[in-house]
Amino acid sequence: MNKKDVIICRCEDVTLEELHNLMKEGYTSFEEIKRILRVGMGSCQGNTCGQLIQRELANFTNTPINKVVTHKVRPLFAGVKLKSIVKALDDES
């Protein structure tokens, strides 16, 4: 398989090859991989890639999938313009 052509994270354009290389280097948790490849830090916040990376990690580390911790969820669920937040404050006062 040409792993360069398999997209794991659409937001940050991360390929399966990059993911596998990093796992081979010893980075075998979502948190570590996120810090280096930016997966889960894009605008979809891991909604698309989280589950794929979880599966790859489970296979690589030979861990049952339910033991593989995936991405943290932080606000916001969808992007909000800064000026929208300001506008809401102006409307309140």
Partner: peptide, 17 residues
């Protein structure tokens, strides 16, 4: 932020921590 750097008001916040 919008007060000091008005144009960035158009940017979407995607994450906070």
């Amino acid at each position: 932020a919008v007060n000091l750097l008005p144009p960035i008001g158009d940017l979407r916040v995607i994450r906070q921590w």
